[in-house]
Nucleic acid binder design. Sequence first.
DNA 1: TGAGTTAGAATGGCACCACCCGTC
DNA 2: GACGGGTGGTGCCATTCTAACTCA
Lengths: 204, 204, 204, 204
Amino acid sequence: MIITVASFKGGVGKTTTAIHIAAFIAKRRGAGRVVLGDGDLNRSALSWYERGGDRIPFVVTDGDAVPDNYQHLIIDTPARPKDDELIALAMNSDLLIIPTTPAPFSLEATLATLSRLTALPEDRYRVLLTRVPPRNSKRGDRARDVLLNSGIPVFNGAIQTRTIFEDAELEGVPVYALKGTVAQDAWSDYEAIGREIWKEWGKS
Amino acid sequence: MIITVASFKGGVGKTTTAIHIAAFIAKRRGAGRVVLGDGDLNRSALSWYERGGDRIPFVVTDGDAVPDNYQHLIIDTPARPKDDELIALAMNSDLLIIPTTPAPFSLEATLATLSRLTALPEDRYRVLLTRVPPRNSKRGDRARDVLLNSGIPVFNGAIQTRTIFEDAELEGVPVYALKGTVAQDAWSDYEAIGREIWKEWGKS
Amino acid sequence: MIITVASFKGGVGKTTTAIHIAAFIAKRRGAGRVVLGDGDLNRSALSWYERGGDRIPFVVTDGDAVPDNYQHLIIDTPARPKDDELIALAMNSDLLIIPTTPAPFSLEATLATLSRLTALPEDRYRVLLTRVPPRNSKRGDRARDVLLNSGIPVFNGAIQTRTIFEDAELEGVPVYALKGTVAQDAWSDYEAIGREIWKEWGKS
Amino acid sequence: MIITVASFKGGVGKTTTAIHIAAFIAKRRGAGRVVLGDGDLNRSALSWYERGGDRIPFVVTDGDAVPDNYQHLIIDTPARPKDDELIALAMNSDLLIIPTTPAPFSLEATLATLSRLTALPEDRYRVLLTRVPPRNSKRGDRARDVLLNSGIPVFNGAIQTRTIFEDAELEGVPVYALKGTVAQDAWSDYEAIGREIWKEWGKS
DNA sequence: TGAGTTAGAATGGCACCACCCGTC
DNA sequence: GACGGGTGGTGCCATTCTAACTCA
């Protein structure tokens, strides 16, 4: 399975999403070798990986030097891909994940681009709402409605804003490696997404 | 006065900062004509301006078509400028503002770049901490300490995370145009920054 | 049923216990009229009742003026009863509850007195551990062991230290009338005691 | 110097206060012979003294048999003194200390009594807040405000709730005789009170 | 014995919601 | 009567501190 993570706006948790989706897959029984190819210019995923070392259950490599011997590949792309690049990414993947926050600019950018890209098959990509205000997902729900009304596929789950994601980033580990109930709650968010992915694309 | 806003990471509130700094200056008595040149590829500031119309006390133009008849110019740059671009921006401005969140990646990117750019004069730029968790300034303070210990100038004030900034974005106005005490608190954050700027660079 | 609450040391939650035991009984289906007779010189229970008014599901009267038409009577006695007074109280009640904290002085006073009062039938009284440090019941368990080893009957449940009991006191209501999960947890402590009482003496 | 400790409610740390104030004075250089007269009916201070033996730097005697050859005398009174008794105690002492917890009943009892006793000279007594929740709690400050607003003198310091006071009681020593940083923190609380006393009444 | 770890409680702040009130 | 603004109440997250346990 090849999963690409791309976004039209920075700071929406693209790298965090790539890391945690890769971790979810790597933790599946019999998942085989999982590789995360870091194509982001900031090399954020590599930095994360270097801090965490062997506490990360998959391999992170430079996006230009992905080895062949993987079972599942997650690609963290540069920000703001051009239209044709995006379509190429999607066509070469089983699934394109587009993290988006409920903030107007982020939502607007996602909507505008995806509405334009009619060539993108609906079963090849899905939007993931991230940095959703924790309390009541009113903002998150509104954003999901807007997207769905435009015919854009959205994950049922969403990732809440949690400072523990920053702690995990600092530690260089996925959130489940941190202690406390908060860490487990945060991980649950990504687990729900992971299950959605596995159910739909797990056989690829 | 020419102020440039640039950042090494997306989603740190670069456009929000440009809008509100411009608004602060435009509201000063006798400030003259204020222009915000939107150089960001997403044209976020222009989009903000178009929604708000005449409720914004300054003019937003395309970054490539800035008129000459301004008294103060604020420039919203594209994300992730290259080193030489950044230095050119700084040398052509009175002040370069670099919004940064306390998140590890954001801080790391800012630190790495600014440590590298020794050619950047210290009186020409300043880091602005944005999206600081509101409850406890511990995260913000830690980030400020890290920056100051590296010899990087940082604004005394900081911008807290507040959903009302998203509301303002949606409305197309600066936060002070919204009602409620929360809006005024949010505006106070930028006012404090504005005063710091005016005190130091107001005569330029 | 007549329940008397007495203690050999102040500040152990005697009034709080009387209020909540009365509340538990009053909330039982078909419990009939419940009266709390405040015999304490500080008139704490009356003060509590006056603050709360009709939010308290039973009646509090002066200990010297208890009406006859009650189904269940709870008596809050003055602190430090003399030996013969205590025995009289116990013989005139179905159950004598002696709240005690795990603090040495409190425990010591309870132990010394009860060891001396061999005339007190074991099925007529029971010690209630109150103000038990919440984190770890070790202090409470030790105190219970000490008491049980001396042949003194102790409730299985215990009342943890919680500031919400002070809030309830200030409001003049039982804790269950306050909001939040903490209030419910605190009420659970007394519910457990209430069930123990009801099971053993409910038919009286 | 004669110091009397009295309270209008049990369980507020009256004996603990008497012990530690006596210990503070006895540890002063050149303080001379310090005697604690235990007038409490429970003989708590005597019990404390008997457990500790010579680890206590002062003498504890029965309140009815205080020797004459003391330099400083601390009196632990019975609980709930009557109005005239209290005034007599105060007039025969240099300082009357009234320990009070921030709990409503305790505060209420202290307020009501002290408001009534206008005959009590303000330079002869002072309220000591005890069993105050940890520093991050505002309960202690609120209680102090209530008292000060009623014109009642209160010590600047306060005694926090700490289980180590129970350990000290069990051991029969002042807290400073126990090991660990917690013990020293607890002792600091009483040291601060002791310094306030010494500064104001030390020459008596 | 001392330091690090863990768990639980209490506080404060923001976001959301429901109600109230004043105005047109 | 409808609408808008303001206010109070609720829920939840982040933080901090204490107490007990663990390990060296």
